[in-house]
Amino acid sequence: MASKKHAHSTGTPATVLLDRESVPYKVHIYFHAPSAGSYGLEAAELLGVEPGMVFKTLLVATGEAGAAALAVGIVPVDRSLDLKSMAAALGLKKVEMADPAAAERRTGYVRGGISPLGQRNPSRTVIDASAMEMGKIYVSGGHRGLEIELAPADLQRLTGALFAPIASR
């Protein structure tokens, strides 16, 4: 499943991190249509996998100062991030969706291609508990049209994330 040859062709911080840590993964590249309404649902359809296996990376503002001001929530693309559950997982009373420009600055990635891996400035991370039930999941590889398939436990280890029920229908 590991693919050093892919890292050279994709060259994102996410694939560089995976190679450096010798984590098994697969890269999936597809043509992203600018007219697509949902990056994640588009990825699931074009990869031919259930939407619940493809996870989106969302940033929230925590209201705290400094590096703790943003946190990452990783949820299936066919669900929404439950802000109350996310706050509770972080031990906070409230969080709100982060400004997209702040998310891009913080991660070094563009909206629709934000990977939970290899972020410029990593943040506290929570992965929806549904990922624990799967042998593999898909997350953005660092740009639109690039998905990385890997084990949820590897994603958790590399991001220092915790698993919690943070998604809602």
Rank of each mutant, 00 (worst) to 15 (best):
V54S: 07
M134R: 15
K136Q: 13
P116V: 07
T10Q: 13
F163R: 05
K4S: 14
A101E: 15
G160C: 02
M134G: 02
L90D: 00
A2T: 14
L47D: 00
L158M: 02
K4V: 15
T159E: 03
T57M: 05
L158F: 12
T62V: 01
R169M: 12
G63F: 08
T125M: 10
P51W: 01
R157A: 15
R79F: 13
E64G: 08
A33P: 10
L59V: 02
V139Q: 13
A101L: 14
L58I: 15
R144E: 01
T57Y: 07
F55G: 03
M97W: 08
G142E: 03
E104G: 01
E133Q: 14
P34F: 13
M134L: 15
R79C: 11
A102G: 12
S130C: 14
E50A: 15
G52N: 11
S85Q: 13
P34N: 12
V75E: 00
E147S: 12
R120E: 08
P76N: 01
R20M: 13
L18T: 10
L162D: 14
R20I: 05
A65P: 00
T15D: 06
T15H: 03
A167D: 12
R169P: 12
Y138S: 08
P152M: 10
T125L: 08
G145S: 09
S140G: 00
L70D: 10
F31M: 09
L46K: 15
A2G: 13
E149P: 12
F163Q: 07
G145V: 12
D99P: 02
A153F: 06
D99H: 01
P165G: 09
S9V: 03
A151G: 01
A164V: 06
L162V: 15
V23Y: 04
S38K: 07
Q156M: 11
M86V: 10
P13E: 14
K84D: 04
G112L: 03
V16D: 11
T159I: 03
D99S: 05
S35C: 04
R124S: 06
A153L: 06
E42L: 07
H32Y: 01
L58P: 03
L81K: 13
T125F: 12
H6V: 06
L158C: 01
M86Q: 12
T15V: 13
R105F: 09
P76K: 01
K56N: 15
Y138A: 07
R144L: 06
V139N: 04
R111I: 14
R120V: 13
M1H: 11
Q119I: 12
V60L: 04
V60W: 09
D128M: 11
E133D: 07
E42T: 14
A87M: 03
P34E: 10
S130N: 09
S9C: 05
V72T: 10
V110F: 06
T159W: 07
R157V: 06
L46N: 09
A36G: 09
S38I: 05
L58G: 12
I148Q: 08
